[in-house]
Write a protein that binds this DNA or RNA. Structure first.
Lengths: 146, 146
DNA sequence: CTTGTAATGAGAACAGTTCTCGGTTACGGT
DNA sequence: ACCGTAACCGAGAACTGTTCTCATTACAAG
């Protein structure tokens, strides 16, 4: 799932730009996000990162988000979900299971992207918005819940 | 914003199917959702529906969602947002302001819908999902926040 | 090694949402 | 119209995901 050739170096740089260190804890969280390859919740991060206190997980993610390393994904369930920024993981969309709430990544197609961009421009101009990005989620049932 | 010819009748029917009544309070909330024409938060619902207690607003929305009359929209801000089900309001997408969090409705184009459906099918089948719908949100800045 | 500053961990605090419960209202049968 | 039953409502307590506080620890620079 690693798209960026030197992920940790890039992360370190972005943190350094804010005068923040790339510590063991932060590296572990980035490692977890990278390995997951899909948006994960705090409980998931905690269970796959031993000895990580909950408060540190939240704080670390806040720092990573501020540094542009991670971002929060709006999900349906009780917990928020987090993933690496697209500069690190590559642009993609999400498959959301409407039963269990799990979210998987799915690569975009150029044809789809073109249609999305076009729609964005047209729709936005009508209502005076400046469009900076988009979210496209497919909703359905995952193999397990089907 | 009313797409369905007999909205209140339809709502009453869906509630009746669950042996629930279409009371004044519920009618008022449906009226508010319909008039808003965009996903609204609980505070917004309360301020445009005088004498509605907060607890009733939450409970009413839970009932309406269970009856398939309303649905919860995943937003970025602190508060959840609610809108009428698409069977009542028509299929549409959202313009999300990344500054103030406001969400506006935007009508879909047939060209875009076709591209989305096609992409949905292809992408989902790869991962064993059954796709039942999609969400397409445009993120940007509204006229006020720009 | 010393020192200053950032980072950490545990728990308190906070906010949105849900639940509880007594009282009220509305529908269905007689 | 009356009554009984069940749904509904309002106020506030309770719950839960997230954020904040602060004393302590670890790190980088000199």
């Amino acid at each position: 799932m690693t798209v960026h050739p030197d992920m940790h170096g890039e992360v370190a740089g972005r943190l350094a730009a804010l005068e923040q260190r790339y510590t063991t804890t932060r590296r572990a969280v980035v490692e977890t996000l990278s390995r997951a390859g899909r948006p994960v919740t705090i409980p998931e991060i905690l269970s796959s990162t031993p000895l990580l206190p909950q408060s540190s997980a939240y704080r670390t993610l806040a720092v990573l988000i501020e540094a542009g390393v991670a971002r929060r994904v709006t999900g349906d369930g009780d917990h928020g979900r987090f993933e690496l920024a697209e500069e690190l993981s590559g642009h993609h969309h999400h498959l959301v299971c409407e039963v269990c709430g799990t979210v998987d990544d799915v690569p975009p197609s150029t044809r789809l992207e073109r249609a999305l961009d076009e729609a964005a421009r047209a729709a936005a101009e009508d209502q005076g918005y400046t469009v900076t990005g988009h979210r496209f989620d497919l909703v359905g049932r995952c193999p397990t819940c089907r």
